[in-house]
Design a protein around this nucleic acid. Structure first.
Length: 442
DNA sequence: TCTGGGGTCCTAGGACCC
DNA sequence: TCTGGGGTCCTAGGACCC
């Protein structure tokens, strides 16, 4: 048996905001999505008040004011840095960690409990369970003490069971639950709603409910082969994992991304092509920077425009177009140039645009792409000399921005006072990532 | 007035090839 | 008039996750 743990930060974004406002400790706090659109995080107090996940802010605005709810715009620099601190803390207990999302990590604790003669798996015993409970207590106490972020911890022999244990742990006072003991597992899985099982989304929930399945325990008893025939290999693995059979491995090395997308809603609707172009140039520039950070190049670019789908009184138009680069690239000017060219081709007069998206597709490692390039004849506009010049230029730009602050140097096409700027009325300072914002103690 | 953003994986079906 | 079979690759769409 393997020992898989899942550590999950409670109400992560809201908890991050609370760390720097001790006075908010017992107050309801909600964090809004980009553009102050929807509620994406709620402190326990806010949940208790009945604020639903994903609810549009304007629908609860008055309620929030009347109930003394703290409202925050999202501040991803802060959350990213706090996440990093939590993940660093985890390495105290094991180096075998898969960072699954900004607020969750899988831990492989098997290595800590291997006895002489055991190679890669351990045998379950009461003593082991005791030791693990002790370790879990240490984790659940240490992470908040070191970072200010409260966490819940679940243990299981598979990732899916660790996730399930974590869901149960969240409701417990000690924030811990173990599903390692096969003897007790069934009873615990009966208490877990099938909707809370990892891999059961809205659609599967409807279908499973129709089949009469209500709990995680019910799902675990379905025949895996039947599952495969009627659904797919994904759901088959889901059932097997719930039965304690490992199908999903921990991915400790982050896999290179295959696509990069940058998409934002605008602060207001845009009708002119000029204004829209500034948004596209900015998104293209951000995407290009991400490519360079990952040392990858993209093979193609897709641009999509969206009108406001909630304004049914207005004409709707959602065009998209994909064009390949002559050769895979991560050069900002080249990507901006293609993004604008596509934008001009799909833009139509007479529509009010609310959102745009760029997708950098089929990304591959820079050096691999470089080795392959000799197979192709250089195209006319972008010859090797120009590529090399732009590569040096981007290196210089990135260096300056790293030293002087992101966005110090930018391309004119991005505009100086962009009309698309999202609304962020309640944004908190970057307490941990900007010198000017470091809190002072009085 | 105001409604988020960024990912992955799998399957079915068509195109194409021999 | 009659018209096979098997494989691969690509894409769109649908499901999921946080």
């Amino acid at each position: 048996m393997k020992i898989v743990g899942l550590l999950d930060c409670n109400s992560f974004f809201a908890s991050c905001e609370k760390v720097f406002h001790p006075a908010w400790e017992h107050r309801p706090v909600v964090v809004l999505s980009n553009n102050d659109g929807c509620v994406v995080a709620r402190s326990p107090e806010a949940k208790k008040l009945g604020i639903a996940m994903g609810v549009p802010y304007f629908q609860i605005k008055n309620f929030a004011a009347a109930n003394n709810i703290v409202v925050c715009s999202s501040n991803y620099s802060l959350y990213g840095d706090m996440s990093h601190r939590v993940m660093q803390t985890i390495t105290k207990w094991t180096a075998d960690v898969e960072i699954y999302s900004i607020d969750e990590s899988f831990l492989d604790l098997t290595g800590r409990f291997l006895r002489c003669g055991q190679r890669a798996e351990v045998e379950w015993s009461l003593e082991l369970e005791d030791e693990l409970a002790k370790l879990a207590r240490e984790i659940v106490e240490t992470v908040p003490r070191w970072t200010g972020i409260p966490v819940a911890f679940g243990l299981g022999p598979t990732k899916t069971l660790a996730k399930a244990a974590n869901r149960i742990a969240k409701k417990r006072d000690d924030h811990f639950c173990s599903l390692l003991d096969a003897g007790q597992r069934d009873e615990l899985l009966k208490t877990l709603d099938i909707a809370d099982v990892w891999g059961v989304g809205r659609n599967l929930l409807t279908q499973f409910t129709r089949l009469g399945l209500a709990s995680a325990f019910d799902l675990a008893r379905v025949d895996p082969l039947w599952m495969r025939q009627n659904y797919s290999v994904v759901q088959e693995k889901l059932v097997r994992e719930l039965r304690g059979e490992r199908c999903l491995e921990l991915i400790e090395l982050p896999q290179p991304r295959q696509n990069i997308q940058v998409s934002r809603s605008f602060g207001r609707m845009l009708e002119s092509l000029d204004e829209l172009e500034q948004a596209l140039a900015t998104f293209a520039s951000r995407g290009a920077l991400r490519l360079r950070k990952e040392k990858t190049v993209a093979s193609a670019l897709c641009v999509q425009l969206y009108t406001n789908r909630f304004r049914t009184d207005l004409p709707q138009y959602m065009p998209a177009m994909t064009i390949g680069f002559g050769r895979p690239t991560n050069s900002t000017p080249e990507i901006i140039s293609l993004a604008l060219s596509i934008g001009r081709q799909i833009w139509r007069e007479g529509y009010a645009y609310k959102r745009a998206k760029i997708l950098l597709l089929d990304t591959v490692n820079e050096t691999v792409a470089c080795q392959q390039k000799m197979l192709f004849e250089p195209d006319t506009k972008y010859n090797d000399e120009r590529r090399e010049k732009e590569r040096c230029l981007m290196q210089a730009v990135d260096l300056i921005n790293r030293r002087a602050g992101q966005g110090r140097l930018f391309f004119a096409a991005e505009g100086t006072t962009p009309a698309w700027q999202p609304n962020q009325a309640f944004v908190s300072p970057c307490y941990t990532t900007r010198w000017e914002d470091i809190p002072t103690a009085k």
